[in-house]
Design a protein around this nucleic acid. Sequence first.
RNA 1: GGUCCCAUCGUCUAGUGGCCUAGGACGUGGCCCUCUCAAGGCUAAAACACGGGUUCGACUCCCGUUGGGACUACCA
Length: 467
Amino acid sequence: MTTPVRVRFAPSPTGYLHIGGARTALFNWLFARRNNGVFILRIEDTDRTRSTDEYILAIMDGMTWLKLDWEEGPYRQTDRFDTYRSFAERLIQEGKAYYCTCSPEELEERRQQALALGKSPMYAGRCRELLLKPAAPAAVRFRMPREGQTVVQDMIKGPIVFDNSVLEDMVILRSDGTPTYNFVVVVDDIDMKITHVIRGDDHVNNTPKQIHIYKAFGWEVPQCAHLPMILGADKTRLSKRHGATSVTAYRDMGYLPDALVNYLVRLGWSFGDQEIFTRDELIQHFSLENIGESAAVFNPEKLLWLNGQYIINSSPESLAEAVLPYLKRDGTVAEDAQADMAWLGKAAYSLRERSKTLVEMATQMKYYIADEIAIDPKAQEKHLKSESLQLLAEIRILIEEAPDVSAAAIESLVHAMATTKGMKLGALAQPLRVALTGGTASPGIFEVIEIMGKELVMKRLAKVIGG
RNA sequence: GGUCCCAUCGUCUAGUGGCCUAGGACGUGGCCCUCUCAAGGCUAAAACACGGGUUCGACUCCCGUUGGGACUACCA
């Protein structure tokens, strides 16, 4: 009987859910699902000046959109300050932590001096042996061992060895009594019985410090797995200057959550040559062993391709659902309109191979829906000359008199007309396309006619031909 | 500066000592299909950072160099 897997995603609410955070959340979620474990959301808001409720909501919104559901939480660390203080108190009692009255200004000054001398800027331990009593403005520092080594057994990178001499006596309680990150993480992970800590590898240097806190309390250290970073095209850590980095920005740009998840999971994880996975396949195949060890560059073009693949493989029903919000956002469909979802599905489905995003799809759908369309001047110039207009007039009569405007029916009519005139189909199809869609690119023109319906087609032709 | 991590096509990656004249995917070029644009099919160019070992044999193991990244707060 093994202990049940419990993992957590622990973002700090100082910004929206970004690409890197989303991938960390995703890997935790996948690991939990794969192992029938529990996925916990914990908000690390001990920095009260930078954390906001708005960001907490935004993070949850992002996770919900990506369909990363959690069993427990969101826990908020600001709700747990009493717990942290009592734990810290215990450390002080046992001499494992001590009061420090050095002011931030002094510390900064000493750091600069050390740096100028080419020495390590870490806290030298001035108050370490003073056995100070709790004075008004005093921080509490953890007493790190000065000798020996600490080994982090990382599930992705293998053993990582640190000399204890490089470990700083870090502050665990600020002088205002609030706890700091490296301390609360450990208290919470134990309190929440976390079995596996899966996080970004920007935390590896924190890990040996945290290990000593576990030990100070006599606790067992969870398994840890440090994920490689996600980089921008310039190979520096992905940030705002690399363009869109928040998850919701991708929603706004018309990406499907499953596509983003698929892209993110393949950034650092692989399963042979497979590129596209269903959620179930992901859960089934996911394992920490298949995670790479090197940082990965975020490639928007591959994400775009994947999104296109997901759109192509979507059903008409799900496309209708997915694209509707964008149609409303554009004002193509009225906010309060009762949409004909079956028709919408058919229209969206016709554009699935031509839309890399839902935004592109919604844009193209305008010509199926709008009363008036703008005609591209270049297209008009090329395809709507007077001879073309005459042909269109003939086609207009053909369609007018047609008992049904199914793609097949109209196609055979127009084909026959082309044959009679000894013309190529394109000579008829292109003017028709420009007249109906306003441009030179669209789905098969007969499919377009079927979807538009006779009334709208007649209207568009009348507009172009005149009369 | 110190500590730690990393190193296969431009990018994501497969590869766990011989299966590699290094495979797949995105992107790029060409061809095919075709009423347009796509989608799709076929195809081409494109990589084991470098130097030492270990071994009968290294992309794979070890060491070093170089390069990149992260951390180095009373931020998380």
